[in-house]
């Protein structure tokens, strides 16, 4: 068990290192460096050179990478070119919105998907299953911003129960949670549809296994067999998908953040790209990669928790 985790940690640490080098060099290779962007097109070459040397941009690439990495390991992501504020603080602030939003959306998706997937698998080939398959197909096909608009129309405009947008900050916890509720639902619906379908097909495959027949011969009903034996065995593909969904939700909520006017990570990245604030883009992407790798590790842990055969490796 310990060996398995250790090996996974080492391999994930290495992927993080490779990813950081890749992110760094890609941004470096893009034509037009930050200095020229900051000074605009009409800048004097001497001024440009002075600024470059001041920013350390004239140093050799590997050295700059090493410095950049060392600083990041101490929590210093540098300063945003446009806002002149520390990037670490900006990302941390946005994370207080994006992270809870992603967690809420994923939990909601799971809460919807598990009963639906179990229901469909238990009624495989019957009308209930067909209804679920049709409904989830629609859920995947319809974009989440469309759900977002419907939700706003219903809960904000008509029923006046929930705010239509904005984020009051965590100083007011209840208001903050309420503000995240509709966006989380809008994000969760398509993910729930995907997850329900994955769970259904994993359950159906598991139900064909010999140990399910053994369980039936023990005297368990079909429903008991599904819950007690099939579900856990079907968890590996479901966990894989959930890990991918969480990573997507963390940064992929940009449209929803715009619809609900939320100060999330997606909007920060979008603004930074349009303002050519490359150092912010670089840092945000690195944070996202780190988050994905951390989630992958958690999923690996979950695999081992589910399947005793993995613990011995």
């Amino acid at each position: 068990m310990l060996g398995y985790l250790l090996r996974r940690m080492i391999s994930l640490g290495l992927s993080l290192l490779v990813a950081s080098a890749l992110i760094f060099s890609v941004v470096e290779l893009v034509p037009g460096d930050p200095a020229s962007f900051m000074l605009g097109t009409g800048a004097q070459p001497e001024t440009l050179a002075a600024l470059r040397s001041q920013m350390g941009l004239d140093q050799p690439l590997p050295l700059r990478y090493a410095r950049w990495l060392a600083a990041i390991l101490q929590g210093d992501f540098g300063q945003s070119f446009t806002y002149k504020t520390p990037i670490a603080g900006m990302i941390a602030e946005r994370m207080t919105v994006s992270l809870p939003l992603a967690v809420m959306a994923l939990l909601l998706a799971a809460v919807i998907a598990f009963p639906v997937g179990l229901f469909a698998a238990a009624r495989r080939g019957r009308i209930g299953d067909a209804a679920v398959m049709g409904g989830t197909q629609l859920g995947i096909a319809l974009p989440n911003f469309w759900f977002a608009m419907l939700l706003v129309l219903l809960f904000s405009v008509r029923l006046r129960l929930l705010p239509a947008g904005g984020f009051p900050g965590w100083g007011q916890p209840v208001a903050a949670l309420t503000a995240l509720l509709l966006p989380a639902v809008a994000l969760a619906l398509p993910q729930a549809a995907i997850l329900a379908r994955v769970l259904r097909s994993a359950l159906i495959e598991t139900q064909g296994q010999d140990y399910i027949r053994t369980a039936r011969a023990k005297g368990l009903s079909a429903a008991q067999t599904l819950r007690r034996h099939a579900l856990r065995n079907a968890m590996v593909p479901v966990l894989t998908i959930m890990g991918m969904q969480f990573s997507f939700l963390l940064a992929g909520a940009i449209i929803i953040e715009n619809v609900f006017y939320l100060p999330g990570l997606g909007r920060l990245i979008f603004q930074a790209i349009s303002q050519r604030d490359l150092i912010v883009v670089q840092s945000a992407v690195l944070v996202l990669v780190a988050a994905v790798i951390a989630v992958t590790f958690l999923v690996d842990l979950a695999y081992a928790a589910v399947d005793p055969r993995l613990r011995r490796r």
Partner: peptide, 10 residues
């Protein structure tokens, strides 16, 4: 088939 007749996770 005894190899697959038991639930591997239990």
């Amino acid at each position: 088939e005894p190899m697959t007749a038991l639930n591997p996770l239990m």
